[in-house]
Nucleic acid binder design. Structure first.
Lengths: 347, 347
DNA sequence: CGCTGAGATGTTAGCGCTAACAATCGGGTG
DNA sequence: CACCCGATTGTTAGCGCTAACATCTCAGCG
């Protein structure tokens, strides 16, 4: 039962196991890899020797001869945002479930050079595939110019015609949020967008605009944020001023929850409260969102699913299939920050 | 300038470079590894051949012969919390700076079995060292029983006498928070603690209690949370009830910011506002904390530094040194959620 | 002018593993 | 009873690299 502490001097090799089981190292290899033509008795003897010795095959040696490390490289830009961190978690789980391990490289910024270096390092490491996780155009561009000798899959990034990508359906998600607000009787919905060089931010703008146009609502100029609470706060101050100046702003849709938090803080300071004075809807559904003041209506993204599909796409590519995945749907979560529009002022 | 697209058929080997440069593969190896005895002219010729061909050495082959993969394995339990995610970021950066790449394994729970499997997989992968990142006792125990043939370093976990660990000084951080509240005139400070099986949660309790005892303040029974906003909300409801029942609760210190958010929401619902009715202090300094309603006074942990020190410790161990690192200090960040105590009711 | 030795380069072996092929062993078949 | 076939096992040859040793060259020196 008790496993003797592995001798730290030199890790065991197949030869050690073979000697103990009284077979050739090749038979050990066959057992380890589940080859069919091994007699049951032999197999058992080998397995026992493996267990007794605590033997683990050396992946470097295996990689050298098979040419595959069974490792996926993940390049990402800053995982301090909730979304990417969650997605990474999903990727890791799915990868491990498929028998791959994940090697990560976290860039400080998405410059083409940094991206190229990271991909390069992964190529040297002989990863079987590379997953790029980022929503910025820089990253997408850098990726487009790269031609690594292994499959390169984008998650939430670019995704041209020939470079496959998985992502959440930003546009549909945004439309959900806007429709919800319009259904509540708001004449239009203002938007605090994410940074201009983010594909997701643009997707949300597109969805917001499309939904407004679909019902013939006026389309106000969107405000520009950068995902941070502080930029949401700035937007909130601006909108609060405009409201006090008499402008008809009754509903705001923000491109993420963090900015919504900042906006709520600014509104609160200005004496405006959601949903009475103005309705607020975010995007992401942070774990904190239900505890904002007030609890935030938002659009949930299924990041775990995103990670899963990313790995799925990688595996398909590895098999040579040309899968072009459908976007992951988003889901509206209604909480207290959105409510019916106040009766319109004298028209 | 333009690099020919690498022939995807078979990656280049040293022999290819050697042929092109008109030297032996060993000379190429010497150039790649920066050995001294190579004539400058030869070195240059080889380097040019490498650049022209876009050659990258095969790490698997190198690992096989040197026995070192220059990879660090990271085992962690759920990185969906802000802290661990940040720490991981710091670890990755520091590791890469030291020429190591990071392979991650994210466990669903910190059972001894899962931990052992992950460490085992890393051993098979022949990582040079393993870093365990988690604050739960399960993890610490699992770790203690493990005897991998490579250095195993704990970050924020256990840390016995012989198993080195790095961590933030929880106790000092908690004392900072409590002292701040006492200095504001509060007679005592209530505490909403983290889960009982978390070492960090216990450290914060210890610091909180120590500081109260140091000034002879009464030590109320701590409430128990689980890091989530929802548990903070529950604690908030409880405390709000007690306040309305006339109990003298004027200051609350919570073991993290997320719980503080939940508590603030509960207080707000109950018509209690910080800092007028009660002072609230959190722990972590989330990026969102300045935008809570009200902005949250909290204790900042330097996670990036933690990651850096983790790698530092790994490298020391790899060199055979017996470094026992000092804990990372925490820092008090004063914002609006804490304020002077109201004048005491008739004593 | 032959010898020495340091610097530069080449040759060989082998890391631990898998793929391909070779060998062995029974049990049926003509 | 020789023969063949399939199941099982063993043997051999690398995968691409580095370490150790061998070789070669040429400057310096007695």
């Amino acid at each position: 039962m008790v496993q003797p502490a592995a001798a730290a001097v030199r890790p065991l090799s197949m030869a050690d196991v073979a000697a103990r089981a009284g077979v050739s190292h090749q038979t050990v290899s066959r057992v380890v890899n589940g080859h069919p033509s091994v007699a049951p008795a032999t197999r058992e003897r080998v397995e026992q020797a493996i267990a007794e010795l605590g033997y683990r095959p050396n992946v470097a040696a295996r990689a050298l001869v098979t040419g595959s490390t069974r490792t996926i490289g993940l390049v990402t830009v800053k995982i301090n945002q909730y979304g990417p961190a969650q997605t990474m978690l999903g990727l890791e789980k799915a990868a491990r479930a498929a028998g791959y391990s994940l090697s990560v490289s976290i860039l400080d910024d998405a410059t083409a050079g940094a991206m190229r270096d990271a991909v390069d390092a992964f190529v040297a490491q002989r990863v079987d595939a590379i997953v790029a996780l980022s929503t910025y155009d820089d990253a997408a561009e850098a990726l487009a110019s790269l031609e690594p000798p292994v499959p390169l899959v984008a998650v939430q990034v670019g995704g041209d015609e020939d470079r496959p990508a998985v992502g959440v359906d930003q546009e549909a998600g945004a439309r959900l949020a806007v429709r919800h607000l319009l259904d509540l009787g708001h004449r239009t919905v203002h938007h605090v967008a994410g940074p201009a060089d983010s594909k997701e931010a643009r997707g949300r703008i597109d969805g917001w605009r499309a939904e407004l146009e679909a019902v013939g609502a006026p389309v106000p100029e969107p405000l520009r944020g950068d995902w941070t609470p502080s930029s949401g706060y700035a937007a909130g101050r601006q909108l609060a001023d405009r409201i006090r100046a008499g402008e008809d702003v009754t509903a705001v849709f923000l491109a993420n929850d963090q900015m919504a938090l900042g906006l709520l803080a600014a509104f609160h300071e200005a004496g405006l409260e959601a949903p009475d004075d103005v309705s607020v809807v975010g995007f992401d559904d942070l774990p904190e969102a239900p505890y904002f003041t007030p609890p935030l209506t938002t659009v949930r993204q299924d990041f775990a699913e995103l990670g899963r599909r990313g790995v799925q796409l990688v595996l398909a590519r590895l098999r040579g299939e040309d899968l072009h995945p459908r976007p992951v749907p988003a889901q509206l979560i209604v909480r207290a920050s959105s409510g019916p529009a106040k009766p319109a002022p004298a028209a």
